[in-house]
Design a protein around this nucleic acid. Structure first.
Lengths: 166, 166
DNA sequence: ATAGTTTTGTTGCATTTGCAATAAAATTTT
DNA sequence: AAAATTTTATTGCAAATGCAACAAAACTAT
């Protein structure tokens, strides 16, 4: 059933392509819109947290957000109690841009879910959240240099996974 | 309900990160595994078709597959009836590598679907296929330089979408 | 048949991405 | 309190990505 992850990959690349092409007209470079949206929805958030939400590398987030700042869509504010962190806030023009982004996102969503009943949508969202929660620990692990010993485990020597039991 | 596309994005980036890190030990650079898998599963396929399956740009596929060839995992064969196309086939070592890839993919899939019943998995796969089929035409359109006029349509001036009616 | 279009493939260029290394503040441990 | 670890952020480097432009074979239409 690896088709599931493949379908997810295809869908994601489709929407990413489309969004990047469409947002170029707005002056947003590749993938910048996802960062802007998260900052607008979570004003005061720090970079590290944005990277976690999006599942991208810290350095990638650093540069993408740096560009959003340079373009005037967000500002970085020092925290009084913590000199290390930089809180992120949208500017006026960032919020205006965000409104445009939302239109696109809502539209893409409508296209994606054509023909779905609301129960189906609810179920699907539940499924996807569960998958994400299932995989997040592995992501954290591998991100920090850990290794998933799937070769061993697949041979049946270990048995950490509930799913293995069936 | 744009959460659905966001969840898909997060899940995809998680698995992509993990796979890229894990496959680096095998000598596979970023994302090369997805190309190799498709070629092994569809021997004789041409590049253009691989790009379509994966939803990546032609030039991206061209280079990624070029590297697979250089690494000796695949070969490109001229067609007798059509001088333009190059059919792709895995080599011995490509097939060996593919076997390793499959282990990882199967394992990731198991992790992802922990706690899912088989009916749920079936439903989920059905949902995802429908989403992909819903979005593919837009991808084809935008890829070829077309524009989706979602701004107009969202204002209610047009009404091409069934989903708009609810 | 021949002119126009589509299909397939490659390459230069600019951009994004992620890894590794670095740094400094904050937190935890001893 | 001092030392060790963790958290947060940045930057050089190498690699992947996609767009645009190009080229050539194949197909379509006049």
């Amino acid at each position: 059933m690896k088709d599931i992850l493949r379908e997810i990959g295809m869908i994601e690349r489709c929407f990413e392509s489309i969004a990047n092409i469409e947002f170029k007209d707005y002056g947003l470079a590749k993938n910048q819109y996802i960062y802007l949206a998260r900052i607008c929805e979570n004003p005061g958030i720090i970079q590290e947290r944005v990277a976690d939400m999006l599942k991208v590398h810290r350095s990638t987030a650093s540069r993408a957000i740096g560009k959003l700042k340079k373009a005037g869509f967000i500002i970085k504010k020092c925290d009084k109690n913590n000199k290390k962190i930089l809180k992120l806030y949208p500017t006026e023009s960032g919020l205006k841009m965000y409104a445009l982004l939302e239109n696109e996102e809502v539209y893409s969503d409508k296209v994606a879910l054509q023909g779905f009943t609301s129960e189906e949508i609810e179920k699907l969202l539940n499924f996807l959240k569960r998958i994400r929660q299932n995989i997040e620990p592995d992501w954290e692990l591998v991100k920090k240099g850990g290794t998933r010993d799937y070769l061993i485990r697949l041979q049946g020597t270990e048995n950490r996974l509930k799913a293995d039991k069936r």
